[in-house]
């Protein structure tokens, strides 16, 4: 419904501007807070004009809380999760869409149902497995009555432990599946006639064709992985493995410690932690939109 009248134009613009303010104002406050020193940030009400401690706050919190190393950790985890998800989802969707085998739909629904089981729901069993990967195997071995001592394999405090449980993704599989379903059968058949086997078809046709999808998925998943808080908090006990989001929480000493929260530094850190996902979204925006909306052919 496209209707143009000055009144309607004004109204829609007004709505848009209100929406923008509602969304952007908190971020503005965060920014302002990060430019003041501690006394002025704790004034009520807080000033809405930028202060002059911007560089000082950022430099201080960066070195004090070791954000260089933490951001690197976060980056490794986010990239690992993203790459893993993009690859795993592509392969699983490839299997579900292009192969005819028994229980195909069962597998599809099993993947689909995990949409309803986010990490937070299955966090205890996941932790148990991560604490000793061999445990389920040992249980199986025991079930069959075999005497076999499997050494414990511990994923706590490792990048593998941080990344692996986050990789499985129903969203990604579903996104790929929907795209693969739009690929005409004759394209598959043409590749068959040209002599390409399944692996070749996957690598030389499907993957290049799903570039936009991959970009969209990678963007969403990078942000998702970067923002992970609960899982890193559980699985890492060593400070050296902490991620940036975990570190944020440590900057704000709660009232428990009897200290006033250092809001200006906390806000500076928050903004810094927001930057990498923001950059990813900005750079990928072009593909992101194309991948989610329509397939160009």
């Amino acid at each position: 419904m496209i209707e143009r009248s000055p009144l309607l134009d004004a109204l829609t613009h007004a709505l848009m501007i209100v929406g923008l303010i509602v969304t952007a104002f908190p971020i503005y406050v965060v920014f302002i807070a990060s430019t003041h020193d501690l006394p002025s940030v704790n004034q009520v009400p807080m000033s809405l004009i930028p202060g002059n401690h911007l560089v000082e706050n950022y430099a201080k919190v960066w070195s004090k809380s070791d954000f260089g190393a933490k951001m690197l950790n976060s980056l490794i985890v986010a990239v690992g999760v993203t790459v893993g998800k993009v690859i795993l989802a592509a392969i699983s969707a490839f299997s579900i869409v292009f192969f005819r085998y028994r229980l195909r739909m069962v597998f599809f629904w099993m993947i689909f149902i995990t949409l309803m089981l986010p990490l937070e729901v299955r966090i205890v069993p996941t932790y148990a497995v991560a604490a000793d990967v061999a445990e389920p195997l040992r249980w199986l071995v025991w079930l069959f009555g075999i005497e076999l001592a499997l050494p414990p394999v511990n994923l706590l405090n490792s990048y593998t432990g941080l990344i692996l449980p986050l990789i499985a993704t129903a969203t990604g599989t579903f996104l790929y599946r929907q795209f693969f379903l739009t690929i005409p059968d004759s394209l598959v058949e043409a590749a068959k006639m040209d002599g390409a086997g399944p692996v070749r078809f996957f690598i030389e046709h499907l993957l290049p064709l799903s570039r936009n999808n991959m970009a969209a998925l990678a963007t969403i998943m990078f942000v998702y992985a970067w923002n992970q808080y609960l899982w890193p908090l559980l699985i890492t006990t060593e400070q050296s493995m902490a991620t940036a989001t975990m570190q944020l929480q440590k900057i704000v000493p709660g009232p428990l410690f009897g200290q006033p929260p250092i809001w200006n530094e906390a806000m500076a850190a928050t903004l810094m932690v927001m930057v990498p996902p923001l950059l990813v979204v900005i750079f990928m925006q072009h593909y992101f939109v194309r991948g989610l909306i329509a397939s160009d052919k």
């Binding site: 005409p184 004759s186 394209l187 058949e189 043409a190 590749a191 068959k192 006639m193 040209d194 002599g195 046709h205 290049p208 064709l209 052919k297």
Partner: peptide, 20 residues
């Protein structure tokens, strides 16, 4: 035999060219 082993080539109705 698999299609590639039969020595046939096919021209499809919608051409089925590889778009990429």
């Amino acid at each position: 035999l698999e299609p590639r082993e039969r020595g046939c080539a096919m021209v499809f109705q919608n051409y089925a060219l590889y778009p990429h």
